[in-house]
């Protein structure tokens, strides 16, 4: 915790917060969480912490990110004649805070603090996440990276639309492609009329 207070330029903002809250964290119960407000669907199996569910590694990317920011903060030149605090101060503060928070997350997870919204545990136990649907949806989100520069916006968006609908269980490929193309062409047309270019219709043919 000292790390936060030292690295921080706003002790009143960070230091106290983390300090106070973390004293009894291991035993804290999380009855709900705003971030994913996933409902009352299956509120049956309340708050059972399974030993398999200890994602200790969740904190690691946070620690890595904090380390990158600390490293980056160190390499910002501070040669200009600024007055007060320099451009690196906030970067260092944020980096240090992320490292500390990452370590706290690891500790929490190892102590068995639940990392799933309580309301959902029952639902999860009943239905494991569908890997196939997830991959299809992710495919739809990653696809534009490869295609937008040569297929252009309308066709790319059509494919994205179809992949996402299939992730959600649609099986009518041709219909989805058609709806996708209609929607994307309409957006493309409307936006170019407004004066925002979404790129060429088909960059391949110019």
């Amino acid at each position: 915790m000292v790390g936060v207070a030292e690295g921080s330029r706003h002790p009143q903002l960070i230091g106290t917060t983390v300090n106070r809250r973390c004293a009894g964290l291991g035993r804290q119960r999380f009855t709900h969480c705003e971030g994913y407000p996933m409902t009352e669907i299956n509120p049956t199996v309340a708050g059972r912490v399974s030993t398999a569910n200890r994602p200790w590694w969740v904190g690691l990317p946070i620690i890595v990110m904090g380390a990158i920011w600390l490293y980056g903060g160190g390499s910002i030149r501070a040669t200009t004649g600024f007055i007060g605090i320099g451009p690196a101060a906030i970067v260092d503060t944020v980096g240090a805070a992320l490292v500390v928070l990452g370590i706290l997350l690891v500790i929490q997870a190892l102590r068995g603090v639940p990392f799933t919204p309580e309301d959902e545990e029952g639902a999860n136990a009943a239905a494991p996440p569908s890997r196939k649907a997830f991959c299809l949806a992710l495919g739809g989100i990653v696809l534009p990276l490869g295609t937008i520069q040569w297929l252009g916006f309308p066709l790319t968006a059509m494919l994205v639309f179809t992949l996402v609908t299939h992730a959600f269980g649609s099986r009518r490929t041709v219909l989805d492609l058609a709806i996708g193309l209609a929607l994307s062409s309409f957006s493309w047309y409307g936006f170019s009329k407004l004066g925002i270019g979404l790129g060429h219709f088909l960059p391949l043919i110019g």
Binding site: P154, R172, V174, L175, L177, A178, I179, L181, A182, S185, F186, W188, Y189, S192, H200, F201, L202
Partner: peptide, 20 residues
């Protein structure tokens, strides 16, 4: 389904024509 296809195609051609 076919109607959708035709509609989609129409929009696309229209859009292309307007730029060409």
């Amino acid at each position: 389904m076919r109607r959708f296809l035709i509609a989609g195609g129409l929009v696309a051609t229209l859009a292309m024509m307007s730029s060409a």
